[in-house]
């Protein structure tokens, strides 16, 4: 029996797809798998797992949380970067919040406030200043909603009302252009006001480094910057009752690949394992 031409064409296409699936979708990945079993590749292909005292404590490539049951950072461990998925490898991903996400909404902190909250907490934990540009001393985004007639360029030269949108208590500044700054009231919508982030006088290069206050792309970043490791060393040493110099000696900075690729990093899990080996918990 002879099929019509259009059907023959599609059957040919189906046969082509099936034969290519056998080659590209079965033989190819199996061949790569077989080569990956060879010594030298075997560990990586399996997942780069690392062990301590005979138990698998994680993968050297996958970041994890070093927090207690209450979710607070454990002082005896170096802390990883923030993760939007709580370091759960089954929920990898980023926050996807934009660079001008500065106004908190009910149930969701703005990215700016998240950065400020983290900076303040990390500063307190490690005994350094948590101050940042565009952050209030209380650890919220320093953002005003300015109401009043708009000028031609969109600004508000003579405001009638000014609200500090991310603070429900005493605002970070008393007055703006001669108008008293009010705290935000829950449930009120300030969308009509002009959003004005206030820079403040914090240094542009704060003590808490950028990677410590931003969530990574994967949510599983295994690394921190050497600067973030450095500000944590004293606190870890104190928690373990050892001199800071000994903890600092364990920090293995991984330089740029070939000297110019990527950025210098410190692997947090490996560092914490080295700590536990050298100074086991009493």
């Amino acid at each position: 029996m002879r099929y019509p031409r259009w059907l023959r064409l599609h059957l040919a296409a189906l046969r082509a797809l099936l034969v290519l699936t056998a080659v590209l979708g079965v033989a190819y990945p199996l061949a790569v798998y077989a080569v990956g079993r060879l010594p030298g590749l075997h560990d990586q292909a399996g997942g780069s797992f690392v062990e301590l005292d005979g138990r698998t404590v994680g993968s050297a490539l996958i970041g994890q949380s070093f927090t207690g049951p209450d979710g607070k950072p454990l002082k005896r461990y170096f802390q990883s970067r923030p993760s939007s998925g709580g370091h759960d490898p089954m929920a990898s991903g980023a926050s996807n919040l934009g660079p001008e996400d500065v106004v908190d909404r009910p149930g969701r902190q703005s990215l700016l406030t998240q950065v400020c909250v983290r900076s303040k907490a990390i500063g307190e934990l490690n005994g350094v200043s948590g101050a940042r540009p565009f952050c209030t001393p209380g650890g919220a985004g320093a953002v005003l909603a300015v109401f009043g007639p708009r000028a031609a360029d969109g600004t508000v030269p003579r405001p009638t009302r000014v609200v500090s949108v991310n603070e429900s208590h005493t605002p970070f500044m008393a007055s703006y252009k001669g108008v008293r700054v009010e705290p935000a009231r829950p449930g009120e919508d300030y969308a009509k006001g002009l959003v004005v982030p206030v820079r403040g006088d914090a240094p542009a290069d704060p003590a808490v480094p950028p990677d410590a206050v931003t969530a990574s792309g994967s949510g599983l970043d295994p690394d921190i910057s050497p600067a973030y490791a450095a500000i944590q060393a004293g606190r870890v040493a104190q928690a373990r009752g050892v001199p800071p110099a000994q903890v600092e000696r364990l920090i293995k900075e991984q330089g740029r690949a070939l000297g110019f690729m990527g950025e210098p990093t410190v692997n947090v899990l490996k560092l914490n394992i080295a700590l536990d080996r050298a100074y086991p918990a009493r």
Binding site: A94, N96, P99, C116, R132, R199, P209, D211, E263
Partner: peptide, 20 residues
Amino acid sequence: HGTVPAAAGGSMEGVEMRFG
């Protein structure tokens, strides 16, 4: 440039440390 990148001190939100 921008409010959050300036506050953070770098465009590191959503960026992996090893790449920069």
